[in-house]
Amino acid sequence: MKKTMLIVLLGMVSFLLNPETTQAQVTVEHKPSPPKVKLPLPEKPGPDYQLIPGHWIWHRPSKMYVWVGPHWVLPKENRKWSPGHWQKQKKGWKWIPGKWEKINKRKYFFN
C-alpha cells in the first residue's frame, strides 16, 4: 500500500513539475471522477495557511486531465479561494479552474 501511494505521489509531482502542464480549458466527453485512493493530508505548515482542495489540471503531453491532491497555501491579501468545478458544455464537460477572487469590502454609511 505504501509503495502504491508513493508511486501515485511521484506521478503527481512529475506532472506538476513538467513545464507542459497547463491550466487549459479542454472539453471532454465524460467528467472524470476524483481518484479513489486518498493520500494523507499534508501537515498544516502554520496557522495562517489555507487548504486548497484537490483539483484537476490539463496535462497536454498525455492529453488528459490529471488530479492534483490538496495542499496548503498562504492566502492572498483581500482575496478568497473559489474552488474549481466542472461545467456542462454542448459536447461534454469543461473544467473551470479555481482562482483567488477579490473580496468586495463595501462600506455603507447611513445618515
Rank of each mutant, 00 (worst) to 15 (best):
M1A: 11
M1P: 14
K2W: 11
K2I: 00
K3I: 09
T4K: 12
M5T: 11
L6C: 11
I7E: 12
I7R: 10
I7S: 14
V8I: 10
L9G: 12
L9P: 08
L9D: 12
L10H: 12
G11Y: 05
G11E: 12
M12Q: 15
V13L: 15
S14E: 10
F15V: 04
L16C: 13
L16F: 06
L17Q: 14
L17F: 15
N18M: 03
N18H: 10
P19G: 06
P19H: 07
T21S: 10
T21N: 07
T22S: 10
T22A: 05
Q23D: 14
A24V: 03
A24E: 15
V26S: 04
T27D: 11
T27E: 13
T27I: 13
V28M: 02
V28G: 01
H30L: 05
P32R: 03
P32E: 05
P34T: 02
P35L: 01
P35V: 01
P35N: 06
V37F: 06
K38W: 00
K38V: 08
K38Q: 09
L39E: 04
L39M: 08
P40K: 03
P40S: 05
P42R: 02
E43C: 00
K44Y: 01
K44E: 03
P45Y: 01
P45R: 01
G46N: 09
P47Q: 02
D48P: 07
Q50F: 00
Q50I: 00
Q50M: 00
Q50G: 00
L51S: 07
I52N: 01
P53G: 01
G54F: 01
H55W: 00
W56E: 00
I57F: 04
H59N: 04
R60W: 05
R60V: 10
R60D: 08
S62W: 00
S62F: 07
M64G: 10
Y65F: 06
Y65S: 04
V66R: 07
V66T: 09
W67I: 04
W67L: 06
V68R: 10
H71N: 13
H71L: 06
H71P: 03
V73Q: 12
L74D: 06
K76Q: 15
K76S: 12
E77G: 03
E77D: 14
E77H: 12
N78M: 07
R79E: 15
R79N: 15
K80L: 06
W81K: 05
W81S: 03
W81F: 07
S82A: 13
S82R: 15
S82P: 10
S82L: 13
P83Q: 03
P83C: 05
P83H: 03
H85Q: 13
H85W: 08
H85N: 09
W86V: 07
K88Y: 03
K88Q: 15
K88A: 12
K88H: 13
Q89L: 06
Q89K: 06
Q89F: 02
K90W: 03
G92P: 06
G92F: 00
G92N: 09
K94N: 09
K94A: 11
W95C: 04
W95G: 03
I96V: 13
P97G: 04
P97R: 03
G98N: 13
G98E: 11
K99W: 09
E101C: 11
E101H: 07
K102E: 11
N104Y: 09
K105W: 08
K105D: 15
R106V: 10
R106Q: 14
Y108P: 08
F109T: 14
F109Q: 14
F110E: 15
F110S: 13
N111D: 10
N111H: 08
N111C: 03
N111T: 00
